[in-house]
Design a binder for these strands. Structure first.
Lengths: 191, 191
DNA sequence: AAATAAACTTGTACTAGGTTAAGAAGTTTA
DNA sequence: TAAACTTCTTAACCTAGTACAAGTTTATTT
């Protein structure tokens, strides 16, 4: 189970067997079922979640009750309410399982100690965050500069596995439009 | 000149005088004049820029020639074309000085060596990136869930210094609307 | 101080996407 | 296997923001 996690970390930093052992014991296993709520405001989020298998979704509900999908987290992705996780404040984002999923979770406390014991791990998380920033810049620019049709094509290209795995209304919400309009766009595209 | 930089770093990590000395010698001073172009695609960006005084702007020009402001970088902020800086690819973003500005710049090469010599500095950049991610999530949600009027109010609240320092068409571009429409929104608000 | 350019405003016609509502199709649960 | 819930589709009407064009104000340059 922890092999997937170590493999992911090895992509970016080289660790000794002792360090890998330390990491393994710092993460705890958690199984969640489809539709299970993992985080719900105003929870206090103490865990960061690494997805070994399955898929989670992270979303925000705005003042008008509209749901905005921030992230799909299939195998190999991380997800948490970052502001809450880092500052200890109440979560603003919901996290739910779209499928039965295997997770490895680590608490802020344990992670902080781990980062002191294995300084190189800061490196790993720095790289992870850098990638997240670049992906988010990309997404913001997509929303600002392209039409839904184009955004959908890019979504498919970027996440080919997800297209038929997650409900269409969530893809619409990820692209930033209503499910009704997205349905119209798809109909238009298939002609 | 380097005092501002060290002060910024000290906010998040504690360093020895030797380490601070090492940092000081790793950054080079650069002065730019108002309207000066700092990065222009397809430049190869080898520097990350810390703004000591003045203000830079980072923007993207889309396929239709529309300019999208990603970031204003006044005193104390960092800016670079992150994808280019990290991967060595051609820059996609423009960076320009909106005012005469004092910068401290560090090349990727030197930074990488510095991060090995001072592992704690990984920590600092990790925190920097975490904050950037949170700010970007916030911004994406603003674009997806609120009207221009509300976005403008939040912009003023978040960057009170900038409101009268940067041209209005750039604020419009930051908010994601045309300068014409933004002008109308402002007129509407002052009634 | 005049001349020129850059930044901002205003009006009118237009379009991407939203809202509401109703029905069709697919899934769970009983 | 029916009932009940979710998801997806279609259609008529509505609105926030765009495009274009012309005019006004504010900065820069000479």
């Amino acid at each position: 189970m922890h092999a997937a996690l170590l493999q992911e970390i090895r992509k970016h930093v080289n660790l000794t067997p002792e360090e890998e052992e330390l990491i393994t014991t710092s993460f705890r296993y958690k199984k969640v079922r489809r539709n299970q709520v993992v985080v719900q405001p105003p929870d206090i989020v103490i865990y960061d979640h690494f997805v070994v298998s399955g898929c989670l979704v992270q979303y925000y509900i705005d003042d008008n009750g509209i749901q905005h999908t921030l992230l799909f987290a299939p195998e190999g992705w991380w997800t948490t309410d970052l502001p809450g996780f880092l500052t200890g404040q109440e979560a603003r984002y919901h996290i739910e399982a779209l499928e039965d999923s295997d997770l490895l979770i680590i608490s802020k406390q344990v992670l902080d100690k781990l980062l002191v014991k294995i300084p190189l791990l800061n490196n790993f998380f720095r790289i992870l965050y850098q990638n997240a920033i670049m992906a988010q810049e990309e997404r913001l620019l997509n929303v600002l500069s392209t039409k839904v049709e184009e955004r959908y094509l890019r979504f498919i290209k970027k996440y080919p596995q997800l297209q038929n795995r997650v409900p269409q209304y969530l893809i619409a919400s990820y692209l930033g439009v209503t499910p009704e309009f997205f349905s119209k766009v798809k109909a238009r595209m298939h002609k």
